[in-house]
Simulated scan of single mutants.
Amino acid sequence: MMGSIDCMHWQWKNCPRAWKGLYQGRSKSATVILEAVASGDLWIWHAFFGTPGTCNDINVLARSPVFDDLYQGRAPEVTFNVNGNTYNRGYYLTDGIYPKWAVFMPAIRLPLSPVDELFTKRQESVRKDVERAFGVLQARFAIIQRPSLIWDEHLMWEIMLACIILHNMIVEDERDTYLNYQDASDFEQENASIASTSSSHRLETFYVQPGRYNDIGMQQYLQNRADAWDRDVHNSLQKDLAQHIWHNCRQSTNDE
């Protein structure tokens, strides 16, 4: 699980009259949408801002670059095992509006068994991380909590980006006070030990070639996108996660 994804609306009070119909959604006021991915410590590591408020989460996703690295083969390789099955795609926790892709994991809409009920309860509790991040972001910076008085949409994006950067700086500074915090110095010591080995085993220098990066071709691009949209993998992963959570819960209950 790589985090939770959701959207937040920022009211645009001084939206130009010519754009009013484009940005005015069902709230009857002009808004601009922020799509964000947040982890459990409220770190916001993906932000896409500027979609008109008339769009829903699916329309925002169609414009968002959140999966560009995955489609173009630049995303880090991910492999994990759940309930005896191996998967090679990370996933985001979502609400019910998002499509049933291999990279999305919503709650079960109508759980009919204790296994599904427990999975839905755990998924909904963890998915609130991104909504908590939105709440903390607005509580820290009143400028994005109140209706925007700015005329320029690009300036609104700069303000939103500055608030997100400052928010992440605060999270990084206070992360060691969290209940489930793990000291990252362990990884730093491990990397230092690797770098201090003999010269024949030292890490190679990484170079970035100018021009188009990682040209995988259209065929591989379409295949990566089809793998990310695979509904069968989504259903299989959801069942395996439900069983995994159920077995762990029963085991912890027996241990007590």
Rank of each mutant, 00 (worst) to 15 (best):
I143W: 02
I97Q: 10
F119I: 06
A142I: 10
V103C: 13
V136I: 15
D69M: 09
V66H: 05
E117Q: 15
F141E: 01
G50C: 07
D152P: 00
S64H: 12
R132E: 08
R127I: 02
D129M: 10
G135L: 06
Y92L: 15
E131W: 04
S148F: 08
M156G: 06
F80W: 10
G135K: 04
T79N: 08
I143F: 01
T54I: 06
P106D: 07
F134P: 00
D68L: 12
D116C: 10
L61E: 00
L70C: 11
R132V: 09
R122P: 01
V130R: 01
G84M: 02
P147W: 03
N81K: 09
P52C: 04
A102Q: 00
L112E: 14
Y87P: 00
E153L: 15
Y87I: 00
A47M: 10
H154W: 09
V82T: 06
E35P: 08
N88R: 15
A107I: 10
P147D: 02
T86E: 05
D116W: 05
P99H: 07
N85D: 09
E131V: 08
V37C: 03
I108G: 04
A47T: 11
Q123Y: 03
L149N: 13
N83K: 01
P114F: 09
A75T: 04
N85Q: 14
A75K: 11
M156R: 14
H46T: 05
L112F: 02
L34R: 03
P99L: 07
A36M: 05
F104S: 00
I44A: 02
Y71L: 08
F80L: 04
D41H: 03
I108K: 04
A38G: 02
G96M: 11
I97P: 04
T54A: 07
Y98P: 05
G135S: 06
Y91Q: 02
F134T: 00
E35F: 09
L70W: 14
Q138L: 02
T94G: 04
V136Y: 07
Y98L: 10
M156D: 08
R109T: 14
V66M: 11
N59K: 14
P147L: 03
Q72R: 14
L110V: 14
G73C: 11
V66A: 03
V103Q: 04
A142Q: 14
S39V: 05
W151E: 12
T79A: 05
L34H: 04
A75N: 11
A139M: 13
A62T: 11
A62R: 15
D69E: 14
F119C: 06
A47D: 07
D41T: 03
R140T: 07
D69Y: 10
A38S: 14
I150R: 14
T86P: 00
G135Y: 08
G90T: 00
A36W: 01
Q72L: 13
Q123L: 13
F80K: 00
I144K: 12
P111T: 04
I44G: 01
V115F: 02
P99R: 04
I97A: 15
G73E: 10
S148T: 08
W101A: 01
G135Q: 06
N85S: 12
D68K: 13
A62H: 15
P114Q: 12
F49S: 07
I150L: 15
L42F: 09
I108Y: 06
F67W: 13
V126L: 13
D152M: 01
D116S: 14
T51S: 12
Y87R: 00
F104A: 01
V32T: 14
D129N: 15
A62Q: 15
R140V: 07
L70V: 12
L149Y: 11
